[in-house]
Simulated scan of single mutants.
Amino acid sequence: MKQHVFAHLSEAEQQLAGESVGFLNCAVDRIVPNQTNDDPLAVTVEPFFEWAIETRNVIGTVPPIQGAHFVADLGPYIERKLFTVNTGHALAAYLGYLKQYETVQDAMKDSAIGADVEQALSESGAVLVKKHGWKADEHRAYIETTIGRFMNPALSDDIIRVARSPIRKLGPNDRLVAPAVQYCALFGNVPHGLAKGIAALLRFDDDRDVEAAALQQTIAHHGIEGALRQYAGLESGHPLVAAVKDEYGRMEKNKN
């Protein structure tokens, strides 16, 4: 935003703005389901939210903003959201797709899916606690709150919408592979909950999704190992690859 704003200012105005205007990096954690409203400004959101704002670019004193959580370093908060909300959301969607559920909320009513999401978030949570020094009990409460958000009956998260763009979500720095790889490195074990989520992603074959079609073509021609190498940056010798292949093989496609 700063670059776009400064592009419209003269050199003198840029100097003045640089001395008096701070552009603060922030992260917002809130689920906004797909919706269509007559009023374009009317948006339905969940009650929960977290608004983390990094203080490093503050000019003057930190402003009193109701609801804001000011932090020195935004990185851990971005990763906590990615490895918890995004990770859990993705698992519920991909596992729910295999069982032909329509929404994330419907999928989370399935006790087996709920247990898989819980396991994966416990694994990604262990990574976060180890890396960032979060208190284990506080992060456990955050996980439980997050799972409760997925089950909110007032929201309706369409599974196809949440699961779309699987190649992007299979990336080495994204919600499934990143915490799984870091778990292997930190603890020397394979996180089977996250591996199951990655395998379920590889099963996502909705023909309306361009990335899903491309992913299935890659799997057909190069196998699971080739897809994980190409999109997740995982070499065949990585222990996560064998675990994902095992989970993939055990999954039965419950689709007509």
Rank of each mutant, 00 (worst) to 15 (best):
M1P: 01
Q3Y: 14
H4K: 14
E19W: 06
S20R: 13
F23A: 07
C26Y: 14
V28N: 00
R30W: 02
R30M: 01
R30F: 05
P33S: 03
N34F: 11
N34D: 15
P47C: 03
F48R: 01
F48T: 01
W51D: 00
E54M: 02
E54Y: 01
V58N: 04
I59Q: 05
P63G: 06
Q66M: 12
A68Y: 00
A68D: 01
V71N: 01
F83C: 00
T84C: 03
L91C: 08
A93Y: 06
Y97G: 06
K99F: 03
E102H: 12
V104Y: 08
D106I: 03
D106W: 01
K109E: 11
S111Y: 11
S111H: 13
A115H: 01
A115N: 08
D116M: 11
A120K: 01
S122Q: 10
S122P: 00
S124M: 15
L128H: 04
G133S: 11
G133F: 15
E138H: 15
R140T: 13
R140Q: 15
A141V: 11
I143W: 09
E144L: 05
G148L: 06
F150I: 04
P153I: 06
P153R: 13
P153W: 09
S156I: 13
D158K: 11
A163G: 03
V181Q: 11
Q182G: 04
N189H: 13
H192T: 13
L194I: 09
G197S: 12
I198K: 07
I198D: 04
I198V: 14
A199T: 03
L202H: 08
F204H: 10
D207P: 15
R208M: 15
T218F: 09
H222A: 15
A227Y: 13
L228D: 14
Y231R: 06
L234E: 01
L240D: 00
K245G: 02
D246A: 07
Y248G: 02
Y248K: 04
K253V: 06
N254V: 03
